[in-house]
Design a protein around this nucleic acid. Structure first.
Length: 419
RNA sequence: GUGGCCGUAGCUCAAUGGUAGAGCUCCAGAUUGUGGUUCUGGCUGUUGCGGGUUCGAGUCCCGUCGGUCACCCCA
């Protein structure tokens, strides 16, 4: 009986991978001064209805049901509504700008495919209460440094940076009705994938053509996000950034800078995406709170695929793997098992990852177990008690010492060995 | 919701229409205190399920379920 479609079992190896990703997200976000928050997995269904009444798609992909109190509830498909709710409730308690991040699981009921599951982990970071380009740059820089934190470099990924204001100004200059702007942006988003004829059809009401859009994208029109680029350049991140107006993102609520991160080989879908949404908090909180905001999300699924693909990233993940066992205590003489247990407990008290055989076993077998656990050291407790043997498995070097000296010797070995 | 591909042991996969196999993993051993190698033995199957064709179906046909990839969509 397998897990439900789009849901994952996390065997120890999978858990280790997940923990590595989460740990990296946290550590990098904290170097930027972001603080962690979280909300409930289950929310009231109206929280998501409020935001996107016309878009029926989100409601179809919502895991929603009635709970035992006949309350309409839903598993969170994203973090922003929860964030808006939390911020609106206590906005006055926090000094601005607020730099918040979270690592949470999300649920979307859709057909699974590569890089898309029904439950996934996502890192979200937002800066609230600051509308300057510096804030935009800070968010983009965090995204870049997250990727670098996983061992990716400029040949592996690129941040494609755009700005909704550039589009808004362009549309206004062409006398395009604001009601058409969403449709035009949707076409811009599809400009690589759909036929020009079809796109021209969709663009008819706006008075624009595919050629118009392509010319605008080609021109670049970087004025509106030039300050962001300057701030990123000052951080030495220019190599990671590619201005690209064809990035518009599907969401209607973005108001300024928008960006997505792609792998250079373009084998995968976007690794991260986000943008500025200065009106959303106000809308979601019914006016209770009005804060400019910019944020982005990075999911664990596509990221995991890219780590698998890129040796530098995969190697980094391996290099920080946490061993399951550092010291394996061999019970060479069952009569000494109580003393062996004493040693085991002593080692554990001092923080050594320590394991041993739970049942009588031949010494050879116990060493095999130690190998299987990738233990660094073995301690042989046998007839020579109160002396024990300390063996370093990789070098096969073994010394006999009195057991009270054991932990001291181990500390010396730990200090002397890398990693 | 639409379409392509794939369903055989725990995993990766074989098997001209003719007795369902291999490798890996796992478990247990190889003259009583030292290793991931080696050797020996062992476990696991309604070949996704249901029909049909045939003397005979893992194999061919139909249906169905599941998986996967892509489209749609992407909060």
């Amino acid at each position: 009986m397998p897990a439900l479609p789009g849901f994952r079992d996390f065997y120890p190896e999978d858990c280790a991978r997940r923990n590595y990703v989460v740990k990296t997200w946290r550590e990098v976000a904290q170097t930027y001064g972001f603080v962690e928050y979280d909300g409930p997995t289950l929310e009231g269904g109206d929280l998501y209805r409020k935001k996107n009444e016309e878009g029926a798609e989100i409601l179809e992909q919502l895991y929603s049901f009635r709970d035992r109190g006949d309350r309409e509830v839903a598993l969170r498909p994203e973090m922003t509504p929860t964030l808006a709710r939390m911020v609106a409730a206590r906005e006055k308690h926090f000094r601005k700008p607020m730099k918040w991040f979270c690592v949470s699981n999300f649920f979307r009921h859709e057909r699974q495919q590569k890089g898309r599951l029904r439950e996934f982990l996502q890192f979200n970071a937002d800066i609230l209460g600051e509308s300057s380009p510096e804030a935009d740059a800070e968010i983009v820089a965090l995204a870049v440094d997250l990727m670098r934190g996983f061992g990716f470099s400029r040949e592996h990924f690129v941040v494609r940076l755009s700005d909704r204001r550039a589009w808004r100004d362009f549309l206004a200059s062409r006398g395009c009705d604001p009601s058409q702007s969403q449709a035009v942006l949707a076409c811009a988003d599809k400009i690589e994938r759909e036929s020009p004829e079809k796109l021209d059809e969709k663009l008819a009401a706006s008075g624009l053509t595919v050629v118009d859009l392509k010319n605008f994208i080609a021109a670049g029109s970087p004025e509106s996000f030039a300050p962001v680029l300057a701030a990123l350049e000052a951080r030495g991140m220019s190599d990671f950034i590619e201005p690209d107006l064809s990035i518009v993102r599907g969401l209607a609520y973005y108001t300024g800078v928008v960006f997505e991160i792609f792998d250079r080989s373009k084998n995968l879908r976007a690794l991260a995406g986000g943008g500025r949404y200065d009106n959303l908090i106000k809308g979601l909180s019914d006016g209770a709170s009005d804060l400019p905001a910019i944020g982005f999300g990075m999911g664990d699924v596509v990221l995991g695929h890219l780590i698998d693909e890129i040796p530098a990233a995969d190697g980094k993940r391996r290099s920080v793997a946490i061993p399951a066992c550092e010291v394996y205590v061999v019970v060479a003489d069952e009569a000494q098992r109580p003393n062996a247990l004493k040693i085991v407990q002593q080692l554990r008290d001092q923080g050594w990852k320590t394991d041993f055989s739970l049942k009588p076993a031949k010494v050879g077998r116990q060493f095999q177990d130690a190998e299987g656990l990738s233990a660094r050291h073995a301690v042989v407790v046998g007839a020579e008690w109160p002396a024990v043997k300390l063996k370093t498995l990789a070098t096969r070097q073994e010394i006999a010492i009195a057991h009270p000296e054991l932990t001291g010797h181990l500390e010396k070995l730990r200090a002397g060995s890398p990693g």
